[in-house]
Design a protein around this nucleic acid. Structure first.
Lengths: 218, 218
DNA sequence: CTCTGCCTACCGCATTTGAGTGATGCCGGC
DNA sequence: GCCGGCATCACTCAAATGCGGTAGGCAGAG
């Protein structure tokens, strides 16, 4: 069939995967798809950036591995998005820890698929992101949503009501005295609450507390 | 037991939709699915809560409309999750504004599908959420991801490269000396950078900085 | 009744942090 | 060449913060 209904040219895809065997496997499969066209194959971020200038047209989608060497995939993301702002990036990795997912999304990834999925899902993810979607594996999507729930686990029951209120003030960027004013307490009382909060949440500074709160690790 | 092919009983689904016509349409379609069993049909949040006690078993999934009357769906969410903590909620609505999505996710929704989708997608979303996923329509997923990119605008160009690195350290919850160690600088140098950052970003404390960073107001 | 946990408040002390000032060197624009 | 911005380091001072303990009142559990 000559694809009489296809209104679009094949999608230009770049594949960055450090394992040569997997790279071969993925490229074999993906390139065989009529909707896709693999314009770049790289085994590292460096190789990817080296090959970029050779392309006539920038890739529309990059499948980016969060490689074994350190976190090269994550490190490369900002530069990639800077060079190719209109290119969609789908992370593709075995790691599903919240922090790595969070980092990837903050750095501009538009999709995050895990590596234990069928090849068809990989293809679907690439097409989906090109259509303006945000493909995410089940576990990843859940992690992302978990990021929105205020504090379903830790702080519930752990912190007393007063401590919650004090915490709220701190999260708003207030100092001890300002929190005290807001709650109509003595600054010393607030200080006591703050100390107890630190102990309960296992942190040892305002900065650490706010940082972890921001990451939803609270 | 009969049902030789089914390892699981049909999924108990509750459908809350204020438009009688749509409710009929959806329930007709969804109840016809062998994997699903509509145990509750409601035209409002009140009706839903009224019918809940009559059920032998709580629904496993609730398809919740963000109804036309105000935002009844959103308002009902916290109560719903409180009564049925283990029930998954999929929002189902025509609204795709960021704030409504954000509110829904914060309040405990695990899925968010728009109303202009094929009925098959609705069914898929229900099954997906029951399997531990987080089904979201394309546009919704993008909104969610957009929520993570905190600072594409302001700080770019405003802060020097060094200052960005120092800021990064602060955001990670580190103190001056720790940032200094990470960057291989004198603590005094870091302190100078911190002061300059405060001036440029118009804040006057670490707490305020981290707070605004968390809110994406940076 | 005792014990525990919470809320309140205070004291003291070491460290961190915010704010000001100054100094050196590098770089780039005018 | 001068000036401004940047990066680096240093010093002071006052305020905020982290950390330890003490202590009375109050409520619920044992």
């Amino acid at each position: 069939m000559s694809a009489p209904f296809s209104t679009t040219a094949p999608l230009r895809l770049a594949l960055v995967e450090d394992d040569p065997e997997l790279r071969q496997l993925y490229s074999d499969y993906l390139c065989r798809q009529p909707e896709l066209s693999c314009v770049l194959l790289a085994g590292s971020a460096e190789s990817f950036f080296d090959q970029l200038p050779d392309l006539l047209q920038a890739p529309q989608v990059v499948l980016l591995d969060v490689g074994l060497p350190g976190r090269s995939g994550l490190d490369a993301l900002p530069r990639l998005k800077q060079l190719l702002p209109d290119t969609e990036v789908v992370m593709h990795t075995v790691f599903d820890d919240p922090d790595r997912i969070y980092q990837a999304l903050c750095r501009g990834a538009s999709g995050y698929v895990l590596k234990n999925q069928p090849l068809a899902d990989l293809k679907a993810a690439v097409l989906e992101v090109a259509r303006g979607g945000a493909p995410m594996s089940r576990a990843v999507a859940r992690q992302v949503l978990a990021h929105f729930k205020p504090t379903p686990t830790a702080q519930a029951g752990l912190l007393s009501e007063r401590e919650q209120q004090v915490l709220e003030g701190m999260v708003d960027g207030l100092g001890d005295k300002q929190v005290a004013t807001r709650l109509g307490l003595s600054p010393d009382t607030v200080r006591t609450h703050v100390k107890n909060i630190y102990r309960k949440l296992q942190v040892s500074s305002r900065a650490e507390l706010l940082s972890r709160h921001a990451k939803g690790q609270l």
